[in-house]
Amino acid sequence: MRLVRAIGQVALAVLNTVGAVSLFALRGLAALLTGPWFFGQLLRQLSAIGFFSLPVVGLTAVFTGAALALNIYVGGGRFNAEQIMPQIVALGITRELGPVLAALMLAGRVSATIAAEIGAMRATEQIDAMRTLSTDPFRYLVVPRLVAAVIALPLLTVVADTIGIAGGWLVATRFLDFNATVYVRNTVDFIEGWDVVSGLIKATAFGFIVALMGCYYGYTASGGARGVGRASTHAVVAAAMLIFASDYLMSFWFSRL
C-alpha cells in the first residue's frame, strides 16, 4: 500500500510540474503576442545567449566533427566504405549532432544562468520591486529570454554545422589522405536542403526548451541561496532531458515525412 501511495505521489508531482510548465509556456506565448515588448532586453539577451555561446558551441562542434569523421572512417573500413565518410559526417552533423550539441551546450551554459539570475532576483525581492514599478516581470524577464534563445539557437546551429563539417574535413585531409576539394564536393552534392532545415527546426524547439526551463525554475525558485542552486540544477537537467526526448520525437516525425 505504501509503495502504491509513493508511486501515486510521484505521478502527481510529475503531472503537477508538467501542468505548471505548460501554463508558464502558454503565458510566455500570450505575453509575446500582446506586448509591451522590451527590445533593449531582447538585444541584451541575444548577446548573452547567442554571441557569448559561440566559443563553446564552436569548440564542441569542431571536436565532435573530427571524432565523428575518425569513427566513421574506422567503421566504414570494415566493409570497404571509407569513402562515404564525408557524406555521413555531413548528414550526422546537420540532422542530429549540430542542433543537439549546440542545445546541450546552451542548456549547460544558459539554462543555469537564467535560472540563477531570475531565482536570485526572486530571493532578493527584485521581482516584487519590478512589479511595484509598474513593469510586468514576466514580460521584462521571461519573454526576451525565450525569444532570444529561439532566435539564437538556430543561428548557433548553422555555426555548429559549418564548424563540425570543417572538423571532419580537417581530420580527413590531414590524417586520412582525403582530397580536400573532393571532400567538399562530396559533402555539398550529398546534403539536401531538408537535412539542414530539419536540424534548424529542431534547434528552434530546443532554444525554446532551454530558455523555458531556465525561466520556469528561476521564476518559481524559493528558499534563498539554496533554492537558487536547486533551481539551476533542475533547469539544466530538465532542459537536457527534454532536448533528448523532443529530439527523438521530431526525428521520428521527420522520418515519416
Binding site: F38, T124, E125, Q126, T132, L133, T135
Partner: peptide, 28 residues
C-alpha cells in the same frame, strides 16, 4: 506608489541611474 524594500531590492544588472529611472523608462 513608491516602495523602499527592506534590502533595497535594486536591480543588480542595471546601473544606479537606470535603477532610479526604471519606472520612467519601462512603464511611463
Amino acid at each position: 506608489a513608491g516602495v523602499l524594500f527592506q534590502g533595497a531590492a535594486l536591480f543588480d544588472s542595471l546601473s544606479v541611474w537606470e535603477n532610479v529611472a526604471f519606472r520612467l523608462i519601462n512603464a511611463d
